[in-house]
Design a protein around this nucleic acid. Structure first.
Lengths: 352, 352
DNA sequence: TTGAAAGCGATACCAG
DNA sequence: CTGGTATCGCTTTCAA
């Protein structure tokens, strides 16, 4: 088999100049129908397909948009919220005919490798599931001049932020519990930092938190239930939720909270497991609530009380911001609304 | 802020020629230490980072590898097997410092758009979760001359195939059931084609199946239990598994099979749901088995009888094949072993 | 050890 | 409507 055909070969075969061939094939310009037909025929005969890299060099567009998912793929995709977000994002990106490249960490590292980050041809990048305030990947891509979009963070000038109203959602949930009579409410939070710590969240820990959503959800809840204690999970998974919940539930009954608020539905699912293990009825002995409105059909027939966020819409909004950026415009920040969805896991505070 | 710095600017600032600057920065050639230092300093001061597209044009490498997941992301990632596969794949690709680009379908289409496929700079592509025999994306990428790797299909000359021993695994499972005394065994298959059909699989349907693994698993099972009837699920999901299982279980007790074999664990999970709904004890009234050895912790304490495939290893093998391809070598086909893992969902055939 | 110059393959602009 | 020509930014001989 011969070398791959180039535009020049097609042009020669069709008896036109390369520039004409280019225009004819791209369909962009004004070319005589006959000429175009000849060029297309020549291209077909040679099995010509344009070299995207060369096209990119000239046009300044690679057609690749990165999505930074801080952690290892396996973990990221166990998170239904991340998956829904990416689904919304791809939906919007696919109408731009750009591809989504995953910038993930792996077992060794916590983020994509610098080597990768600097050699990949990216038209833009979305910080999809990290929200980390001082991400090295963020710094690096910004230095490269890659247009960036942040979902739930990091917050930076010139980087559109797509977020939800974490504070209000958490506050509403807190009011819901308050109305049910709960006063001893404990929060199981998402990680505040990357250090894999599990345990109580004190003021300093909260202040040094690098995940915007975790911080804001706690702040929102405490705006209604001041001083509600918080325990940090070491990751966002059912297992971690269970482990963290155990820390607060496996105590003498008198010390036990009457309600547990997890900062994600996945963590809440873990809390439900812990409660069941400890023989606690939900919501008889303990109310449990989550956050996200994630799709956890296997919880059925239990319906988790949660704060529903429009996750797919958030992904689409991020995609839209990318489109704006690519069009040379400056997208505005977006804050999407959330809504409390009471389920069967919260109820009146137990008597006694 | 000024335009992004180019190599030329760095060279000028360091008082050397672009070629020298290039060599100095890439670390490849012989440059005086002092010169190199000067160039590096200049680069740092200007915040220079090389244009990956231009570098690609010269080197012929974009650092991007595509992964074709035929369906919409949301569905693909609900499949724990797909997720594990991609995890293994990225693990291997990350040591090549190449990025993984998702070529997915969306709500409208069943595969990535041709426009995307032809404009993306791909060093190689992996058919990860489709195995479809006549995929348009496959044809297109092959025509483009992109090196391809197929996981479970499509089968094509010059395209390394990474697969598992579907037939033997299914046969082993069938023998396991046979030993338990089951004779009335029904199979719930993965989709044979993309048409969303649900219902009995006849010989013609099987012959026209475009998914290699679905076909082979059925063939393997029937090598031990000839004539075992099969019902096709319209997709690989818990819901579809439940719907398909219902078709075969919601019948007079005399007609009911004593064992149900699903071609994936996800489908099997649906079958378990259907059985529970119909008041059938597992394995008392009905034995259920799956395939994959997927990670479905929420089934606990039930442990599904299944055929374990080394999914992550399969992903890594695909990644390795990509590495070989990029190195200009010709990777061989790989067939990985599988292993029966009896769980708590299969038991002796019910008396009477 | 350094620099000049020739590509890599396509596209955009302008003149004809 | 078509063709020449100048890029796009970097890498890579090859000569000095």
């Amino acid at each position: 088999m011969r070398q791959r055909a180039r535009l020049e070969d097609v042009a020669a075969r069709a008896g036109v100049s390369p520039s004409t061939a280019s225009v004819a094939l791209s369909g962009a310009g004004r070319v005589a129908a006959a000429t175009r037909a000849r060029v297309q025929a020549a291209a077909a005969e040679l099995g010509y397909s344009p070299d995207p890299v060369a096209a990119s060099l000239r046009s300044g567009r690679s057609g690749v948009v990165g999505a930074v998912v801080g952690e290892r793929l396996l973990y990221a995709f166990r998170d239904p919220v991340a998956v829904q977000l990416l689904d919304g994002l791809t939906e919007e990106l696919s109408r731009l005919d750009v591809g989504l490249l995953l910038l993930a960490g792996d077992a060794m590292r916590s983020g994509p490798s610098p080597a990768q980050l600097s050699r990949l041809p990216l038209d833009a990048a979305v910080f999809a599931t990290c929200g980390l305030e001082d991400d090295p990947a963020f710094t690096l891509l910004q230095a490269r001049g890659v247009p960036l979009v942040a979902v739930e963070g990091p917050v930076a000038a010139g980087v559109p932020l797509i977020a939800i109203d974490d504070e209000r959602g958490s506050a509403e949930l807190a009011r819901h519990l308050q109305r049910l009579g709960h006063a001893r409410v404990v929060v199981v939070t998402l990680p505040m930092r990357l250090d894999g710590r599990r345990g109580p969240v004190d003021a300093e820990r909260l202040a040094r938190g690098v995940y915007r959503d975790a911080r804001r959800r706690l702040v929102g809840l405490r705006s209604v239930l001041p001083g509600a204690p918080a325990v940090e999970a070491a990751g966002n998974s059912v297992e971690e939720g269970e482990a963290a919940a155990r820390l607060v539930l496996d105590v003498p009954a008198a010390d036990r909270p009457t309600a547990l608020v997890a900062q994600s539905d996945v963590l809440a699912a873990g809390a439900l497991r812990a409660a069941a293990d400890l023989g606690l009825q939900v919501p008889g002995d303990l109310s449990v609530a989550g956050f996200d409105g994630a799709d956890l059909p296997w919880l059925a027939p239990v319906r988790l009380t949660t704060v529903v966020q429009p996750t797919a819409a958030k992904g689409r909004a991020a995609g839209h911001a990318v489109a704006e950026l690519l069009a040379g415009r400056t997208p505005a920040d977006v804050e999407l609304p959330v809504e409390l969805r009471p389920g069967t896991t919260t109820g009146p505070v137990p008597p006694g």
